[in-house]
Design a protein around this nucleic acid. Structure first.
Lengths: 156, 156
DNA sequence: TTTACTGCAAATATTTTGCAATATC
DNA sequence: GATATTGCAAAATATTTGCAGTAAA
């Protein structure tokens, strides 16, 4: 779980990054980061925009895209493009501990804890590449869709 | 390598799929599949469109998108969305034997043979999910960018 | 002969860009 | 005070859709 302590830790990492890159520490950037930390899983631009609207804090789409790019460059947020055109984001802290199951039927994305050996085997490739993080997406049919398909074939 | 024999094998799988789903066997669909088989790695809609133009065989973008959807549904082609908006595709036959290294600096995508145990560990999750294929993307800095960064820091 | 497929153009969706106003350093 | 960042609107990019003509079954 990402609690307030970890939330603060992430804010500090962001501050250090902004200082290092001589970027400005704006209220918008920190507000966006706080809202991102509050998401339990994936989110997209629209969900984030909506969430900020609910808190009565107005931020433009342009700023959202800009901030997400900075956060991605800082390695704090990971950008996924599962199946749809709309990019999905998530906190890297959360992404690192699971793999994604993308259902090829209903396009739902669920998460399963990463097999621990995976990290090790990726680290082993360091001579050719400097791995920062990885994303394992397994495509297939999710439990729900499988049940539906089974019911269908039973009716025949 | 995908040679003509495998190419024919894929055509047959496609034919069987089209028959099963009561879809039509058009010249466009087979021509597109042939061009796809000729790509050695990833490709996108524009590369495919260009390639077909070169062979003097005109196919509209709409048909390309349509056919790629059919091929994806058939499990013959895999659709990736690495970093850009432009979807990248590749033959599943090829995708299954490697993982992707996506450079977070220059956005190049290279391929490395999959660790063989990965397939096994994914199959082990069959009770919750029916895995069809997987895509392991490792993000980080590629060799070229790493060298450039090293040269930069040496100059300082 | 029926209707799925194709091509074109228009519509939609997502992200990026230009620029004036504003706020950080 | 210099200039990075913001917000808005317009542009750019990628994909989908509507529809009339064509071709597979």
């Amino acid at each position: 779980m990402i609690d307030n302590k970890i939330n603060k830790e992430i804010r500090d990492i962001f501050s250090a990054y902004l200082t290092e890159k001589k970027l400005r520490k704006t209220e918008e950037r920190y507000t966006i980061l706080d809202e991102i930390c509050a998401f339990s899983g994936h989110f997209d631009i629209y969900m984030l925009h909506q969430k900020l609207k609910d808190t009565k804090y107005h931020v433009s789409k342009a700023t959202l895209y800009n901030t997400l790019e900075v956060l991605t460059d800082a390695g704090i947020v990971i950008r996924h493009q599962f199946n749809s055109q709309l990019a999905q984001y998530e906190l890297r802290k959360k992404a690192e501990i699971h793999m994604h199951f993308v259902c090829t039927h209903c396009h739902s994305v669920s998460e399963v804890k990463n097999p621990p050996f995976l990290q090790g085997s990726i680290n082993a490739l360091k001579n050719r590449f400097t791995p920062e993080y990885f994303s394992l997406c397994v495509y297939g049919m999710c439990g729900k869709c499988r049940n539906k398909e089974q019911k269908k074939s039973q009716k025949k």
